[in-house]
Write a protein that binds this DNA or RNA. Structure first.
Lengths: 139, 139
DNA sequence: ATAAGTGCAAAAAGTTTGCAAAACG
DNA sequence: CGTTTTGCAAACTTTTTGCACTTAT
């Protein structure tokens, strides 16, 4: 093949997107990242944010969380870990917990698939929502 | 309160939607359900399919699978079970495997959440895709 | 210089909703 | 009959894409 793959250039936009994403513990949506980045680069377009989040998750620099619901969230920490999603506000938190290797072994034979990985997502109520009488859903 | 909650009526549409969903082992998207139902009720609208899938999943008759990706899939079997998703064609299969109760216990304390449930999704390649040289993604 | 990346706006894709007509109980 | 549900279409939300211009290498 001639041009195996295009080079990845280091642009201000990509850099700021990554910095902002790493700066927070939450797992923002593309739109939220766009807002965060806008404070430093007022003219970035949402399309650019999407393109960079996509390319960075492709190269493994960040994680594209495909959790429940329609909209995607992104995680600046690419090491494997689990998430907990709040039924109240829809926020997603990291779990300080070792990935469980035995899970995949336990699933072998339960289907015709060759299992290559797994995604474990806990459902619950975050501390902030637990303190409210009535939680309002943002998602 | 006056009228606590409206009654749920048994319409031909809802009935056929449920029958068609239960007839298949796959986990169709709303659009796929619409196609299936159309063969028996040519005039059902996609909106009606969405509304019924939503109300039935709300009442627990079916399951709204919020697996990875943007579009949702539905499951006619409401008993808790795990799923495996194929990276090749995007299909979702049920796992013949007991839900693991210990998982939630193992997550307690790893976050500020009060855990109420979990969703475990295996990632892999289905038998059909494993047999192909190049898998084409439908998702 | 040249290919990759950007901003903008329009298009896709998926889901929800307003409304008048139809159907259920 | 009074409500719920439907069909239709329009609106909405999230993500992707075409294109001319800019920028990194």
């Amino acid at each position: 093949m001639k041009h195996a793959r295009g080079q990845q250039r280091k642009t201000r936009q990509r850099q700021v997107i990554l910095e902002e994403l790493r700066r927070v513990v939450s797992h923002p949506t593309a739109n939220e990242v766009h807002h965060m980045v806008t404070r430093r680069l007022p003219r970035v377009s949402l399309g650019t944010v999407y393109r960079n989040l996509e390319s960075m998750s492709r190269s493994g620099v960040i994680l594209k969380l495909e959790t429940a619901g329609t909209r995607r969230r992104y995680d600046g920490t690419p090491t494997p870990h689990y998430h907990a999603r709040c039924t109240g506000c829809g926020c997603v938190a990291d779990l300080r917990m070792e990935p469980l290797e035995d899970l995949e072994r336990r699933a072998q034979g339960a289907t015709g698939f060759s299992i290559m990985g797994h995604r474990l997502e806990y459902i619950g109520v975050c501390a902030r929502c637990a303190g409210k009488k009535r939680t309002q859903r943002e998602e």
